[in-house]
């Protein structure tokens, strides 16, 4: 049988908080590689307070000068949304994408028609 052992990673609570019941000492780290790049998730560290978490983050994620900025966030404060009913509803949403408009044949027909009427 499977037991739900989730002591450290926690679970999503009713308010959508990622780490309800999580280890309060886990901090998620985001890093920016160069100015203008997006902040990307780098990993996480465990530390009893913000100051030590920041030191760890710096040691782990920029000791080779590989980051220009770090964000250090308590895991318990992240809101997690992964509900497929909200994010991936089973609807055809092709009309919201450029690829949803296939007009090759229509365009050919329109051009032909225009050319003919110009004659």
């Amino acid at each position: 049988m499977t037991t739900d052992k989730t002591p450290s990673e926690g679970h999503v609570d009713d308010a959508g908080r990622l780490g309800a019941g999580a280890d309060p000492d886990v901090w998620e780290v985001f890093r920016q590689e160069k100015d203008g790049e997006p902040m990307r998730h780098a990993g996480n560290v465990r530390a009893p307070d913000r100051e030590l978490a920041t030191h760890y983050a710096r040691e782990f994620y920029s000791r080779r000068n590989e980051s220009v900025r770090l964000w250090v966030v308590p895991r318990t404060e992240i809101s997690d949304l992964a509900d497929p009913d909200l994010l991936q509803p089973p609807l055809d949403r092709s009309f919201k994408r450029p690829g949803g408009y296939v007009m090759r044949d229509k365009l050919d027909a329109a051009k032909k028609r225009a050319a003919e009427s110009a004659e």
Binding site: K5, T6, P7, S8, E9, D23, G43, N44, V45, R46, Y56, E59, F60, R63
Partner: peptide, 15 residues
């Protein structure tokens, strides 16, 4: 030492 810390972190989340 840093790799050990990163890996223990991964393992911790498994319980």
């Amino acid at each position: 030492c840093g790799h050990a810390q990163l890996l223990y972190r991964v393992a911790e989340d498994l319980g």
